Simulated assay, not measured.
Amino acid sequence: MTSSSQRDSSPVDGEPINEQEAIRRMADRNDPSGRYYAAWWLGRQRSRHPRTVPLLLEALRERCTPGNADATITPIAIARNAVRAMAKLGDDAQPCINELLATLESGDTGLVECTARTLGELRVQAALPGLRRLLASQSPTTPYEAVLEAIGMLASQDPSVCAELKPFTTHPKILVRCAANRALLQITREPIWADALLELLHNKSIGVRRASLLDLAAAGWLPAAESIAKARVEANLKLVALRELTEQCPPGKDRTLLEAMDDLL
């Protein structure tokens, strides 16, 4: 039983919390908004608390349970945040892998989307067959952008994978085309795919310019540094992209990138 003094000492919504409070909220099934925020917090802080992974897994497994009819945050929304948090945990997320692989088949577009990205970020090679099945599904509900990004992070120079990706470079949705070019650039390192993204840096839509800039950075395409620095997007986004390039740059070869970042500050 929780005393009134214990309740009063808990942070209210919007106040900073610590790991102990995040774990408490994550375990409280009567507070969906608290669990939603706690899942985000545990991932953001890369929590290594022994209860973090079990609680995130519980949230994912409970995605289909009936939620509180009066709650604005549903179990599926909490599950999505839990999956996003797993991506930040690195090797600590290993106990989650089988559940994540199964979740690729869940049918919920939002959940499949964040699961694909998480499996890619965790470098789970076993996810490739499921991702390739999704790519071939031709379903209007498949989150192709996320699936393509994940394949780009996982696939080696396999001609059969590249053959499956190339049709998406002419997809009707421009952000899907961005993701396909990014994946092919990551896998093949062929400039043709970088050129397509560089061209999109001049698109009239700022959303497309942002996406192509981040895709070039995620692919670690160092020749794009100057174009990224001059792109017509927010300076803070250019800094994020240039910083990502420096993290993938060989030691001692990042001077130009650092100078470009200094110019933006």
Rank of each mutant, 00 (worst) to 15 (best):
R123M: 11
V12Q: 15
L119P: 11
M153Q: 15
R117L: 15
R61H: 14
D31P: 01
S160F: 05
P191L: 07
L175S: 02
R243C: 00
M86R: 02
I17N: 03
L111D: 06
T118R: 06
Y144L: 15
S33G: 01
L239F: 00
A150H: 07
T74H: 13
I187N: 12
S9Q: 12
E121M: 14
E19L: 09
P159L: 07
N203K: 03
L237I: 14
Q138P: 00
K166M: 14
V208L: 08
G90Y: 07
G110S: 05
P95K: 09
E105V: 06
L257T: 01
A235C: 01
G14Y: 10
G14W: 13
T169N: 01
L135F: 08
I97R: 12
T2H: 06
G220C: 01
R117G: 12
I206L: 09
C249S: 06
R61C: 02
S156K: 12
P95R: 11
G252T: 04
I192G: 14
D262H: 10
L165D: 06
D215T: 00
L100Q: 08
A136Y: 00
P16K: 13
C249P: 00
E226D: 13
E113Q: 15
E121W: 09
L237E: 09
A116M: 13
Q157V: 09
A39I: 09
P167W: 03
A93M: 06
A196R: 13
N236L: 05
L42Y: 11
L257H: 05
A77C: 04
P11R: 08
A219E: 05
R189E: 09
A126K: 14
T246P: 00
V233M: 02
L56F: 04
Q94E: 15
R243G: 13
R63A: 05
T115N: 10
F168M: 11
S9C: 09
A155L: 02
R63G: 05
M153I: 00
R210F: 06
E21P: 04
D92G: 07
V233D: 06
S212A: 15
D28L: 03
H49E: 02
A219V: 04
L135K: 02
M26N: 03
D8A: 15
Q125G: 14
Q248C: 00
A260F: 10
A38Q: 08
E234Y: 04
A241S: 07
G90I: 03
